[in-house]
Simulated assay, not measured.
Amino acid sequence: MGIELLDRTALVLFSGGQDSTTTLAWALDRYDHVETVGFDYGQRHAVELEVRSVVADGIRRSFPDWGDRLGEDHMVDLQVLGRISETSLTKGMAIAMADDGLPNTFVPGRNLIFLTFAAAVAYRRGIRHIVTGVCETDYSGYPDCRDDTIKAMQLALNLGMDTRFVLHTPLMWIDKAETWALAKLLGGDELVDVVRTQTHTCYEGDREHIHDWGHGCGACPACELRATGYRGYLARQQA
């Protein structure tokens, strides 16, 4: 085995969006020490990188116990990924479906690269558990979000680094309404408010318009998915 990993520590892939914020809360609820890692890959919604610290500060203020567990944040420069990707998330093109049946927001290899760099950070920091907010239930069809992909990545990372990482995907089998409900379960209405008012999901990077479900243009696929999930969450709360 390459190095000794601490079993009560976790590294969360944290973009500043709804899913990664809920995932961060999930990790803070379970581990004694949690660090975060973000990626600048030339995304058109780079404003998400700016809100990461805002969201983290909001969690520290609202949840002091979690704040005591929240450790160092790591930022990885992956601008090269944006330069080699011909996608609507990294180039000035309209969001649409591609000929292969995937939305052109799909950045090939993105989550594979994210997890590889996250594992490199975790290896250096002696962190055993790596947590990511990918989901196969309510997603855009991205193949690198699938459960089989994550399981294969865990095997490859452990073989390639001669260690025993565990990759966690707490959102894998739940839809967006259930993701809102998970935030409520973990941190009550306070955490729901943090997610709703401070996180960023909109592909267009719109922070000017505010809706009941949060900031965004209200028209891009990310906004539509988030809004639909929020309406479903409210309906289930009232049922």
Rank of each mutant, 00 (worst) to 15 (best):
G133D: 06
P108M: 02
A120M: 11
Y123H: 14
R110M: 07
V134D: 04
L102C: 10
D100K: 01
A94T: 15
R83N: 07
L89I: 13
I113F: 03
E86V: 12
R128S: 02
F114N: 06
T132H: 11
S85K: 04
K91C: 07
L89Y: 05
G82M: 02
A120Q: 05
M97I: 15
E86Y: 05
A98L: 11
M97R: 13
G141D: 03
V131C: 08
T116E: 00
M97N: 14
G126I: 07
T137E: 08
A94W: 05
I127V: 15
S140H: 05
V121Q: 02
L102N: 03
C135L: 02
A122K: 04
A94L: 12
V107G: 10
M93A: 06
L102Y: 03
A98V: 11
A98D: 15
R124G: 04
M93E: 14
D99E: 15
A94V: 13
I127K: 09
T105W: 10
A94P: 13
Y123T: 02
A96K: 14
I130G: 12
G92P: 05
A96E: 15
D100E: 15
T132K: 05
N104M: 12
L102M: 14
S88V: 03
D100P: 12
T87N: 07
T132V: 10
R124D: 13
A120H: 00
N104I: 12
D99N: 15
E86K: 11
F106M: 13
T137W: 02
R124E: 14
A96G: 07
I130L: 15
V107W: 07
P103M: 12
T116K: 03
